[in-house]
Nucleic acid binder design. Structure first.
Length: 821
DNA sequence: TTTGGCGGCGCG
DNA sequence: AAAGCGCGCCGCCAAA
């Protein structure tokens, strides 16, 4: 091929003057590589402030003929794309080469998108790289690397089996995201209708060194019956075991869960590219197409949903599927190398993340049991609360509301807009706070401070409304009927947070209210008992360890509750609560004589929160308040915010001086904390990231930027919080892994984790043994030694046996069981 | 009719 | 000067 003719087409609406330097940059990058012509869509500047108008596009139409004479053309932004294809949609089209005649067009984003989303920079770089490869190859490069093999005969299948050796990528296409789905909700004539649409696997694919094998399953052009596919799947299982195939996946937890639900097979995942990338850069997105584009210069091969769900011709589906398989396998080598260069992060991947991924396939398969009798009761109680509150509120409703056509409309207590209008314009109540966007706030804290008789009913209304929609109606679509009852199967994202904590969705098990009406719905079926084990004050322990905080370490080593220590120190400093302090101490000391104030303070420290609460229930609140003090000040909260907290949660109005004093006192009590804070700030400033004890990294580039002090300070606070939150979470994951490693599925089923707690059910006759062992595991997970992590601060654990939120410690549970018999 | 931001609130 | 961190999901409402 002779020297290719190359052009770049850009747009320049007047409004986006700031994009000019960015566009120039793109052109410079291209000019450095190629001899090219630059052809702006508009030779002048757009007359419209909204961008380029249709008539302006028409004016540019003659350019099309010119372009047809080029071999390769970059289209920068929406208007050039529109010019060539006749339709807009740059976000969907970018990165996908378009062939018209002998010309290959590559649409890409206008570089100004970086201003709104800095992550787009990588997308731009990837697109430029892709363009380079297209020019180099004289066509779209990966088309030549793909070798798509559709399995249509037994002969094809046997050939595939022989090809499944070494590292094999695995991926499935499905008709839904929920493997337990039986129905979907469709809107017909304004009504929600349940239409049967069971979850099904559309195609199963394997990517090897030379081929992408695809077995069509639930596709109208598939030659295979379900039983035939089942037979093939079982043969693949044997093959994987016999030849020790390394299964490579991208978000394989999803695929493996489906394979278990639909074919009853479980294949071990060896390397997940999504999780690898999550550890390598938690700030980026982790989608396969995005990563392939950024790291491999791949074109965007996304297709419409209907193709993926099997409603379009098979060849379209397999082309798409083959790309998934090919790039998953390619990324494995890219990320494998990157992990090798960072052994600490690699250890987290090998010892924690991949085992956890395999564990959570099982956790999501097993799900969590829901007590449906109680579910009905809770629903009734909440509807009753809802109706009562709403009836109560009726008297305050404005009756003269009209829409913009003058028709009367009902007042909606759930609308913050309407509520603000009522409270602040009509009733003339004072505006206490404003929201981020400057509107008068109607949140709980504000409502409580308003002096108006409607507020109590309003809060009751909100509570019932939210709990009903989140946990009653919200759960219904997810309830999965099994022979022994109903289950939820929450989905956990192992890459869901920047710190390494998991997030949870559909539904979110990690935000179930502590309100017993809801939380105790989570239980265990007949023959099983629910147990929750949690790491007590784990974040504070990890912080004490990292800070080397002498007083905290002393307290933890000597089994003194640190929240309690803070509470008592805080009270003693101000000399407050004299009566309560002395009365509680007197009861506990039981000498008949009232102790002095300082003696009483000593006694309170010694007795601990449980004994104090037993004597006077008020102590519970003071410990809770101290917990807030500890967490707030530990992570950089300022006294002003603490003042709000004290007011909202305890109705305690304190002065600025008192609030400031409490912060000073906190750091007086824990003098090693400020130096730790400074250490973290210096470290993140020097390196741009911080590390946790287990070796995870939190990258915080904003901490190095001097021109944005707000963002920099925020990054510094994250540099303090992240290693704590991250490592606390890792301990919990280690414990979950070990629990399952030590007890088989016949004995233990894990339901999920909640940051510092593991929720699981145990066969009744095993409760005592498993509970005791889990306490040991949580206090000293074996993986801590494997990863060579050693702590001065002891780890402690608590447990509760029984329905969630209503469980009791082992001794009480044993006593209750004995009494029953 | 669908989509996305906002306000609000549940959890650790 | 100003400052806890980390999530997901709901209804509302305006824009597309």
């Amino acid at each position: 091929m002779s020297k290719p003719k190359i052009a770049v087409v850009t747009e320049q609406p007047a409004k986006q003057a700031h994009t000019k330097p960015a566009l120039r940059h793109i052109i410079q990058v291209l000019e450095a590589e190629y001899e090219l012509d630059h052809l702006p869509v508009l030779l002048g500047e757009s007359r419209s402030s909204k961008g380029i108008t249709k008539s302006e596009l028409k004016e540019a139409a003659p350019l099309l003929e010119t372009l047809a004479g080029y071999d390769f053309v970059v289209l920068v932004g929406n208007s050039p794309l529109q010019l060539v294809t006749g339709s807009a949609g740059i976000t969907k089209m970018r990165g996908k080469p378009i062939k018209q005649g002998d010309t290959i067009y590559l649409p890409m984003n206008n570089p100004s998108v970086i201003l709104h989303d800095p992550l787009q920079e990588d997308v731009l770089k990837g697109d430029l790289r892709l363009f380079g490869e297209i020019v180099e190859f004289g066509g779209v490069p990966e088309e030549k690397a793909l070798s798509i093999r559709v399995v249509l005969t037994r002969k094809d299948f046997r050939e595939m089996l022989r090809d499944l050796r070494g590292s094999v990528s695995f991926d499935i296409e499905t008709n839904s995201l929920n493997p337990f789905q039986t129905h979907v909700t469709k809107r017909v004539a304004g009504n929600d209708v349940q239409v049967p649409e069971p979850a099904s696997i559309v195609a199963i694919g394997f990517g090897t060194r030379n081929n992408q094998w695809i077995i069509p399953v639930n596709h109208y052009q598939s030659p295979w019956s379900f039983d035939q596919v089942q037979e093939m799947v079982d043969e693949v299982t044997d093959c994987i075991t016999e030849h020790e195939v390394n299964v490579i996946t991208h978000n394989g937890k999803f695929d493996m869960l489906w394979m278990w639900v639909h074919f009853g097979v479980r294949w071990p995942m060896a390397f997940d590219t999504m999780l690898a990338h999550f550890l390598l850069d938690e700030n980026m997105r982790h989608g396969l197409k995005y990563l392939a584009q950024v790291y491999l210069g791949a074109p965007d091969w996304e297709v419409d949903l209907s193709t993926k769900q099997g409603h379009q011709p098979l060849d379209k589906l397999v082309r798409y599927h083959a790309h998934d398989l090919f790039y998953t396998r390619e990324l494995r080598y890219v990320f494998g190398k990157m992990l090798k260069a960072d052994p600490e992060v690699k250890a987290v991947f090998d010892h924690i993340l991949m085992p956890v991924a395999n564990l959570f396939v099982e956790i999501e398969y097993d799900g969590v049991y829901i007590n449906m009798d109680q579910f009905g009761d809770a629903e009734l109680a909440l509807r009753e609360q809802y109706d009562t509150a709403l009836a109560d509120l009726k008297q305050w409703e404005p009756k003269d509301l009209v829409d913009n056509r003058g028709r009367p409309i009902a007042f909606n207590w759930g609308s913050t807009q309407q509520l603000a209008d009522l409270l602040y314009r009509r009733l003339k109540l004072p505006v206490i706070e404003r929201t981020a966007t400057g509107n008068p706030s109607c949140n709980e804290s504000v409502i409580k401070r308003l002096n108006h008789p409607c507020t109590a009913a309003l809060l009751k209304f909100r509570e019932a409304k939210q709990q009903l929609s989140f946990f009653i109606d919200g759960w219904k679509p997810y309830l999965h009927k099994r022979p022994d009852g109903y289950y939820l199967h929450p989905s956990f994202k192992l890459h869901g947070t920047v710190t390494g904590r998991l997030s949870c969705e559909n539904p979110n098990l990690q935000q179930v209210p502590r309100d017993k009406r809801i939380r105790t719905l989570i239980s265990a079926p007949d023959g099983w008992t629910l147990i929750e084990c949690d790491l007590s004050q784990i974040e504070l322990r990890v912080a004490a360890e990292l800070a080397g905080e002498r007083n905290m370490i002393h307290a933890f080593v000597n089994d003194i509750d640190v929240h309690w220590l803070t509470a008592i120190q805080e009270i003693a400093r101000g000399g407050g609560l004299k009566e309560l302090v002395i009365a509680t101490a007197k009861t506990w000391l039981n000498t008949g004589k009232a102790p002095s104030y300082s003696e009483a303070i000593e006694a309170l420290l010694k007795m601990g929160p449980d004994a104090a609460v037993e004597i006077d229930g008020r102590w519970k609140e003071y410990r809770k308040k101290a917990k807030a003090v500890n967490f707030g000040y530990l992570y950089g909260m300022w006294w002003k915010k603490f003042k709000d907290y004290a007011r909202d949660s305890y109705g305690v109005i304190i002065t600025d001086e008192e609030a400031e004093g409490s912060r000073n006192a906190f750091f007086d009590n824990y003098p090693d904390l400020p130096e730790w804070h400074n250490r973290q700030k210096r470290y993140v400033r020097r390196h741009g990231y911080v590390k946790s004890l287990s070796g995870r990294k939190r990258r915080l580039p904003e901490a190095r930027q001097d021109d944005n002090p707000m963002d920099r300070k925020a990054a510094e606070r994250q540099a303090i919080n992240s290693p704590v939150q991250s490592f606390a979470n890792d301990i919990n994951l280690m414990a979950a892994l070990q629990l399952r490693a030590e007890f088989g599925r016949k004995v233990v089923r894990i339901c999920g984790t909640v940051h510092d707690a593991v929720l699981f059910r145990v066969k009744d006759e095993w409760v005592e043994r498993v509970y005791n062992r889990m306490m040991e595991i949580m206090r000293r997970p074996a993986l801590m030694d494997t990863l060579d992590i050693h702590m001065k601060v002891p780890i402690e654990a608590d447990g509760a046996i029984g329905p969630w939120g209503a469980g009791v410690p082992l001794d009480k549970w044993l006593a209750a069981r004995k009494a029953k018999k």
